[in-house]
Design a protein around this nucleic acid. Sequence first.
DNA 1: ACCTGACCATGACAGGTGTCACGGCCGGCA
DNA 2: TGCCGGCCGTGACACCTGTCATGGTCAGGT
Lengths: 201, 201
Amino acid sequence: MIRVLLADDQALVRGALAAMLGLEADIEVVAQVGSGDEVVEAARRVRPDVALLDVQMPGKDGLTAAADLKVALPGCRVIVCTTFGRPGYLSRAMAAGALGFVVKDAPPEQLVDAVRRVHAGLRVVDPVLAAESLASGASPLTDREREVLLRARDGGTVSDLAKALHLSDGTVRNHLSSAIGKTGSRTRAEAVRLAEEHGWL
Amino acid sequence: MIRVLLADDQALVRGALAAMLGLEADIEVVAQVGSGDEVVEAARRVRPDVALLDVQMPGKDGLTAAADLKVALPGCRVIVCTTFGRPGYLSRAMAAGALGFVVKDAPPEQLVDAVRRVHAGLRVVDPVLAAESLASGASPLTDREREVLLRARDGGTVSDLAKALHLSDGTVRNHLSSAIGKTGSRTRAEAVRLAEEHGWL
DNA sequence: ACCTGACCATGACAGGTGTCACGGCCGGCA
DNA sequence: TGCCGGCCGTGACACCTGTCATGGTCAGGT
């Protein structure tokens, strides 16, 4: 029996995934959590063979949860499961020590297949997404630029960002300008959108 | 047996939901589709008792699909199921003739319960969300303002919007200004965000 | 007929924004 | 040691934006 831990913030899909995986004869869902913070704790308790982690979760991110889990229980294989096939997510998941990466658009059989393969120690990655990830490459943004874009996401003025980050207005404008240039866009909103789509946030 | 049609763009959660509902003795999933355009067609073929529609779908919106379905098969009860509990979604779903409204954060039992209740002809709505919907009220935006905000979402300049909508630059600025005023924000990006959160888009 | 409100447009203006040039501070690296 | 690149700041400039006043058309309601 493959013992699986499930982490997803949406209770409905979490329960549904559990039901689906439970139908398989060789798979058993031994724990379910709804936030990234509970992952390590629950894993320590139930000792799962495979952890299936969503990226978008309240509290700790699914990707950082994967990294933490890799430290706490090195023997536990990790699959990262996400709604969005952002190239950056894949590379970050791999860097965090995940063995599998599944998009929620994928057919259901692919997930149970991924669980089995990852349990056997194999890597499971969508080839299309892997190609995109290589093409898109790593984030060209520096830490500051990322931070500025992150704050700019909810649509404040430059002064707002400057106050929030304890910087000068001009500096914020410079970082924004640089980020706009690197993303190949013409406005800050467009830069935010593109950076988000690439998973550079 | 309650015959259910499932519509969700994410194949994984669609399959998982089907597996979960299939576990119930009195529920049978008779069709699954991945876009809003296929809903009516599939429903005509399988004649389901209940249709479970996601809001976010490629092609036709889940809400408009609900309205179309209500016309094509008036006897078919509709549950709208969504990731985001936007107040505007609820009111639009109700206007479209949906009997149930379930958020994906809800516990799994609530969904199967909703299916049974809706099949019996009862309304199923999250009371918290209903309160929010009433508090937030209907969209204060006019059609044009909504359209302009929609285009402004991906971050182009005023001229871009004007060209896309075949309007004058000044007119676009006026609509944006008005939308900014109505949403109580100070920038167009903030207005877009707020309008989106309220489901006014 | 009158008024209201949505829609479109123009023009003008203050303030915000994106860009550039310049300079200084630091840590890493040959 | 010098060089480089990221980071922070200033100042200036052209341009874009958000706001306002004004005026016109057109549908709907009194």
